[in-house]
Amino acid sequence: MKTKLTVIKIGGNVIDDAETLKHVLQEFSELNSPKILIHGGGKIASELSLKLGIQPKMIEGRRITDAETLKVVTMAYGGLVNKNIVALLQAFGCDALGLTGADANVIPAQKRANKEIDYGYVGDFETDSINIERLSFFIEGGLTPVFCALTHDKNGSLLNTNADTLAAGIATALSKKYDVKLIYCFEKPGVLLDAEDDKTLIRELGYLHYQQLKDDGIIHTGMIPKLENAFAARRHGIDVGIKHALDLNKSAGTILL
């Protein structure tokens, strides 16, 4: 029987709100099974960009990353956000290890090639390229990996990689060795028919229903990459849920079919 492993991605306003983040990390630290945390930090990166006079550019929830923006996301994701999370987890007795995909060469990637849109220093990776043996070494050594949304091209450059994609890829790669559960946590109770009304929660969501909601413009912007990646993991037999971060250890949110 495979060992259970929980992969959790946090993002959105969860990271911006100190009290919420503290509560979520305490609950995360109390999970008994081995676990991995993946975090975003897009809002902090955008705020930092504006302070530095760099206008953030987004397409369907994905950040265009030129050379200056890469510096900003490296500072925000790999520095400020990642190390604050690691320090908080240590305070809760969780022996966390802050990582980018470059550390220990765990997640090599390639600069995105797109003839229509130049995403800049944005990285895409193959699930098979994730070094699951090295990750397992950390996990089985009692460490909890905490990944920010950065990979590398093996030629000396970091690459900005969507955190939702990273979570799905890590979960899928490790499903070969572990019984993986993937949970996306943010500031909403799950997938909503009306983003402004928490009572419109969709408790179960299949891919065809998602496509219809996307075509109708009900699901848009940042929820698109989140759900595309969530369904990609689900197709590999991984249990996937999307919920409010404060409901981390509760039976709540949206379950993907």
Rank of each mutant, 00 (worst) to 15 (best):
Q212G: 04
T221C: 05
G101S: 06
T144K: 07
P56N: 00
I224R: 11
K111T: 11
T165A: 14
T221L: 04
S251C: 08
D128C: 03
T127K: 09
E126Y: 08
D164R: 14
L208Y: 01
L5I: 03
D17F: 01
A252R: 10
S33Q: 05
I38S: 12
V122Q: 08
G11N: 11
T6Q: 11
I183K: 06
L37Y: 09
D118W: 06
V73T: 14
A96G: 15
F138N: 00
Q212V: 05
Q90T: 02
K177H: 01
V122S: 13
L150E: 12
A18C: 05
L52H: 03
L201S: 07
S136M: 12
Q55P: 05
L201E: 01
T100F: 11
L182K: 11
P108H: 12
L89I: 11
V191D: 03
L248V: 10
L193C: 14
M223H: 07
V81P: 02
Q90D: 15
L158Q: 03
G120T: 06
L213D: 13
D16L: 13
K9E: 04
R235F: 01
I132R: 07
S136N: 13
E19A: 03
L205F: 04
S29G: 13
A168L: 08
N229Y: 01
D197K: 10
L5M: 03
L193S: 13
G217I: 05
T254D: 00
G78D: 02
G120P: 09
T3M: 12
E196F: 14
K51M: 10
T100L: 10
T200G: 11
L159Q: 05
V122N: 03
Y207T: 05
E133P: 00
L158I: 01
V106I: 15
K9G: 05
A18Y: 09
T6D: 07
L174E: 10
T100Q: 08
V180H: 10
A45R: 07
F186M: 05
L88P: 08
K115N: 06
T221A: 10
C94M: 04
G61R: 08
Q212P: 00
K243Y: 07
D95M: 14
D95N: 15
I255W: 08
A45D: 11
S33E: 15
Y210I: 13
M58V: 09
N82I: 00
I85W: 05
G78I: 00
V24W: 01
K111R: 14
C185R: 00
I130F: 09
A76G: 08
T144A: 06
S49K: 08
I132V: 15
K71A: 13
K181T: 13
G217L: 09
L97P: 04
L31D: 12
F147V: 06
L256W: 12
I242G: 03
K22G: 00
T172C: 06
T165W: 07
A233V: 00
K43I: 10
V146R: 09
A167E: 02
I59E: 04
L256E: 04
V180E: 12
A167C: 04
L166T: 07
R63S: 02
D216V: 06
I255T: 13
I38C: 06
I139E: 13
Y77K: 00
G169N: 09
R203Q: 08
R235L: 04
L25M: 10
I183Y: 03
V86C: 15
L248P: 10
A104G: 01
D239M: 02
V146D: 09
D216P: 11
I44K: 04
R63W: 05
